[in-house]
């Protein structure tokens, strides 16, 4: 009887471990799938062409495989999104953490939380059918698909992520630091920016990094509103394709399994995975550091 109990406990523990280990298997599955198809791709296309060619035209009869235009598109939408999300997100975080009273803060946090629940395809609709027509009033030459409106809407989407994580970081700064600054005669503003902000810096930076990683991986907004032509440009009023939008475009067509066109989306995915992986590791590292400070 005792023996049965023992084995039952061991078996359950093993089962639970299996469930936890599944996440590692998922990561291995992701990495392997991407790498296997990428290796097949690089047997045909040289690394030199991939990194130095300035054209990405895998669907043309004279196909060119330079990743640069897709990276430029991704970079451009990300920068615009960050230019919106970081200033607004930070100001909101400082306001909520240092100025707003507890009641207001408790009331507004769920609102921000609900806003993060809006599906990205809905944001894509906003970008294409609401923001672009409004921008066209200001900039009459703006094409229907453009990087600017996709980036702006993406920025608005990311604001709640930045503000909520930065606010958490500022809230975790001990009150004694605040009181110390006040006791020295500092104003709220001075306390916020010379004491609290630096003390919470690694947490705030990690929120920025997660924002970058989210912007780089964001798919539906750019697939709907930024256009589908790879375009090596840094001009936000032009259409341009991001890495993610390319994957969507190819997936919607019916590409046969095993062709080079099929492999290109895995190569693009691998580039995306490596980018976000590096940012995530950096973000996790910074968050761990800021947790240990106090």
């Amino acid at each position: 009887m005792r023996n049965f109990q023992f084995y039952k406990e061991k078996f359950i523990e093993f089962l639970l471990f299996g469930c936890a280990f599944l996440s590692v298997i998922a990561t291995i599955g992701i990495a392997l799938t991407l790498i296997v198809e990428a290796i097949a791709f690089f047997k045909i296309v040289s690394l030199k062409e991939f990194f130095t060619s300035s054209e990405w035209t895998p669907m043309f009869s004279e196909a060119k495989y330079g990743i640069a235009p897709l990276i430029a598109g991704t970079f451009l939408t990300t920068i615009i999104a960050l230019l919106v999300a970081i200033p607004f997100g930070t100001i909101i975080a400082v306001f909520l953490s240092e100025y707003a009273n507890k009641k207001f803060r408790e009331a507004i946090k769920p609102v921000l939380e609900v806003l993060t629940a809006i599906p990205t395809v809905v944001f894509g609709y906003f970008a294409l059918l609401f923001i672009t027509p409004k921008l066209q009033v200001l900039l009459p030459d703006l094409p229907g698909f453009n990087v600017l409106s996709a980036g702006l809407v993406m920025g608005v989407m990311i604001i709640p992520y930045v503000s909520s994580l930065s606010e958490d970081a500022m809230q975790s700064v001990p009150n004694s630091l605040r009181e110390g600054a006040y006791a020295l005669g500092a104003t709220k503003l001075r306390t916020a920016f010379t004491v609290i902000f630096p003390a919470a810096l690694s947490g705030i930076t990690s929120s920025y990094i997660l924002a970058i990683s989210r912007a780089v991986g964001e798919t539906m907004i750019v697939a709907i509103a930024a256009g589908m032509q790879p375009n090596l440009t840094l001009n936000p009023t032009e259409p341009a394709q991001t890495i993610t939008a390319y994957i969507v475009q190819v997936s919607m067509g019916d590409l046969p399994h095993g062709t080079i066109g099929y492999q290109t989306i895995f190569v693009a995915g691998l580039v995306l995975f490596i980018f976000t992986f590096l940012f995530n590791i950096l973000g996790v590292y910074l968050r761990r550091r800021f947790r240990e400070v106090y």
């Binding site: 992701i30 296997v36 997660l210 798919t219 997936s251 895995f266 992986f277 995530n280």
Partner: peptide, 16 residues
């Protein structure tokens, strides 16, 4: 780390 992987990458894994 898995929480930060873009959703479209999960899609590629599922496809392959």
């Amino acid at each position: 780390n898995l929480a930060g992987v873009p959703s479209i990458v999960f899609g590629l894994m599922a496809l392959g």
